[in-house]
Computed example of a mutant assay.
Amino acid sequence: GTLLDVGGGSGVFLAAALKRYGGMRGMLLDLPDVMPAAEERLGREGLTGRVALHGGSFREGAVPEGADAISLIRVLYDHDDDTVRALLAKVHDALPEGGRLVISEPMSGGRRPERAGDVYFAFYTMAMGTGRVRSAERIGEMCREAGFGNIRAPKARRPFITSVLTCAKPD
């Protein structure tokens, strides 16, 4: 169907997904200042006709509706818990019943720390002055609080770089 990439920047992830799945359509939400870079990249990739661009902030407005799946790629760890909770609630509201959420970002090892990744991204968020690295378990709890179910965190090949968590809005 349609994938909405929230905080999708210049469209790198969305372009890769659209190339991989030729019948899929895409939507991208990011700040208005980012839209020219997204237009340029997606145009260069020949994907303009398959993508709707939405300039805006997920902090200030609703997440656009119309997607079967929403991706949050390297978004949550840049924000505090209150912002993440609000974003997950907006994503839940925007999805249809059965709609999927895909989260991919650096995640801490939780009860079993991943030394290199946990330390690096703890320093990263400290230097940025915002956000925090959370474990897949913690992100799953936050997704559950927002109303999602069927939460899965497949084992990552290189968890010190990125991990994935998926969930769905119940039918």
Rank of each mutant, 00 (worst) to 15 (best):
L3G: 05
V6Q: 04
G7R: 07
G7A: 03
G8E: 02
G9M: 04
G9F: 02
G11V: 08
V12C: 00
F13Y: 11
L14I: 05
L14V: 06
K19E: 14
Y21M: 11
Y21K: 13
M27D: 05
P36N: 11
P36D: 09
A37G: 02
G43H: 06
G43M: 02
G46I: 05
L47T: 10
T48N: 02
S57L: 02
S57T: 14
F58E: 08
R59V: 14
E60H: 12
E60V: 02
G61V: 06
G61A: 14
P64T: 11
P64F: 01
P64N: 13
G66I: 09
G66R: 11
A67C: 08
A69R: 12
I70M: 04
I70V: 15
I70F: 05
V75R: 05
L76P: 03
Y77A: 10
Y77V: 08
Y77C: 04
D78N: 15
D80C: 00
D81N: 12
R85D: 15
R85V: 01
A86Q: 13
K90R: 15
G99I: 06
R100V: 15
R100L: 14
P106L: 01
M107G: 06
P113L: 06
R115Y: 08
V119D: 13
V119L: 15
F121D: 12
M126E: 11
A127R: 11
R132H: 07
R132Q: 13
R134C: 08
R134H: 10
S135D: 04
E137V: 09
I139P: 00
I139V: 15
G140W: 04
G140C: 03
M142H: 06
C143R: 06
A146T: 08
A146W: 03
G149Q: 09
N150G: 12
I151Q: 10
P154T: 11
P154F: 02
T166F: 01
A168Y: 00
A168H: 08
